[in-house]
Design a protein around this nucleic acid. Structure first.
Lengths: 158, 158
DNA sequence: GTTAGTGCAAACCTTTTGCAGCTCT
DNA sequence: AGAGCTGCAAAAGGTTTGCACTAAC
């Protein structure tokens, strides 16, 4: 059984690798999606129907404290739940379409530049960063433009 | 009675200005702090003891939908509540000290640059942006350095 | 006079906690 | 063996909803 990214980090800290944690960590490491606690719980139940929702929360808390995952909320587009992703990836911003809910990731040097500007101007040492932008994706921009045009046409007729 | 920033915006949209809303809007406009629903409710109760918590939530929802306030969560440092601030101010990032909870605001051109980079690279039109950074403020950096030094000294003695 | 807004109570959803029993090392 | 972890049930915290009454326009 190959330990994946997060799992190795945990072993190094002497944290017990239980069957339940293995399942959850595999899912977090491998799933491409941004998972919230409930989605993670649903996926985990498929692999172990006995696994309890509480264990999901406790594992997520553990990973947060260990700095192994980032917590997002994607601008609360879908509700108040939090989303989690492995912190192994390079720093990136999340860009959410406020019409269709699509989430894109943005990697770019402006993020590092922002962090450095904040450190030098406020004297903080930055540990974690979360950048979430909301707007309209190209597809939804077209649809919205179309709808606006139709609305104008209807008003002109009336 | 002078209508303040947000209040004028609402009038223009034909939304009723009730006594309760006036109180809440005044507080949001004037309070320097970042208010969550409960703090806002506590402050509002001082001005009108009958004002109900639910009205606070409904007003905040209204303002969010109207794009008149930004919703923050300050990295959930204190809990899962949301914070609100009038959107009249220039775009800025929030920087939270993860040790003492102090919140600073950062205004700088990297924010606009980031927004533009995202728009041009992903083709999104950005409507709203939220940037929250966590780290240690200068004061807490000193304290932490001090604590680390003491810990090292203790270990050397043992 | 109408329609929107308020207060109250109760529901809701997500997350946390207490505790007894189980399991990883 | 023993500390750490899990499951279950129950609570907590923050927010939303249904409905009858009230107030703004």
């Amino acid at each position: 059984m190959a330990g994946t990214g997060i799992q190795n980090s945990l072993k190094e800290r002497g944290i017990r690798l239980t069957r339940q944690r293995r399942i959850l960590l595999d899912l977090l490491d491998r799933s491409g999606r941004h998972l919230d606690a409930d989605s993670l719980f649903q996926l985990a139940k498929e692999k172990d129907p006995k696994l309890n929702r509480v264990t999901v929360y406790r594992t997520l808390t553990l990973l947060k404290k260990g700095g192994l995952v980032d917590e997002l909320d994607l601008l609360h587009f879908k509700g108040d739940q939090h989303y989690y992703e492995s912190k192994l990836k390079q720093e990136h911003a999340h860009v959410i379409c406020l019409r269709c809910g699509k989430v894109e990731e943005f990697f770019g040097d402006s993020l590092q530049r922002l962090r450095k500007q904040v450190e030098s101007s406020l004297g903080f040492s930055i540990v974690t960063a979360r950048t979430e932008l909301g707007g309209h994706c190209p597809d939804c921009q077209s649809v919205l433009a179309q709808e606006a045009a139709e609305k104008n046409a209807a008003e002109a007729k009336a």
